[in-house]
């Protein structure tokens, strides 16, 4: 039985060399040759600088841009720290949030915006009446914290605000939204979605 130790050690080394080193190295070389843009992260450049990736969400707060989903990756859209909230449905923190003040009257750094807060903020910034139902993705944080897309319903509710901030017609903005909306793959797979970064880039043009 003990003579099986030799093949054990040697075979592990074979795996290290073939699957640990050779396979990823060869794959990297071939990928960069055939699919350079994707292999490098689908980066988007503007005026010679990298402004992000078409696959990775980023934050937008200005009224003239479409806003993405809330994010709990780091302090928001930190692409070196992907994360969701991992809060459960009976979590008081998730639903009502935490709003405390420290001893000197400042906001406690541990404060958190709950679903109720996010919904109210969404209605306020988009000029919606109180109690208007808001889309689920607008007030929930994604699993990765880096979700680059929002639902078409979410985009539609933001059109009025963006059009006003940019002095554009609502129809012109809606047209851009439609152009940046991806449908279900093969008509079946996935969900319809709007890429926020690409849409905002198109708006800036």
């Amino acid at each position: 039985m003990l003579r099986e130790l030799k093949p054990a050690i040697l075979l592990v080394l074979v795996f290290v060399v073939l699957t640990g080193i050779a396979f990823p190295l060869v794959m990297t070389g071939v990928s960069k040759a055939i699919f350079p843009s994707q292999a490098n992260g689908s980066l988007i450049e503007k005026d010679g600088k990298v402004i992000g990736s078409s696959l990775i969400g980023q934050n937008f707060a200005d009224p003239k841009y479409f806003h993405p989903r809330p994010s709990s990756a780091g302090s928001g859209y930190d692409a070196a720290n992907s994360s969701g909230t991992n809060l459960g449905p009976t979590s008081g923190k998730l639903i009502d949030g935490i709003h405390k003040k420290t001893a000197d009257g400042k906001d406690d750094p541990g404060n958190f915006d709950g679903l109720v807060d996010l919904a109210a903020a969404y209605r306020k910034e988009n000029g919606l009446a109180e109690n208007t139902p808001v889309p689920a993705d607008a007030v929930t944080r994604s699993g990765s914290g880096l979700d680059p897309e929002i639902s078409p319903a979410n985009a539609e509710l933001q059109v009025a605000r963006v059009a006003k901030a940019r002095s554009l017609s609502v129809d012109a903005v809606k047209k851009l939204v439609t152009e940046n909306t991806a449908g279900r793959t093969l008509g079946v797979l996935g969900e319809p979605r709007v890429n926020v970064l690409k849409l905002n880039l198109a708006l800036d043009k």
Partner: peptide, 20 residues
């Protein structure tokens, strides 16, 4: 929070916390 939990053509509804 007043969220639309029923799915429609343009949004998935449901419990989207932690989902993409």
């Amino acid at each position: 929070a007043g969220v639309q939990t029923a799915a429609t053509e343009t949004q998935s509804g449901g419990n989207m916390e932690g989902k993409e």
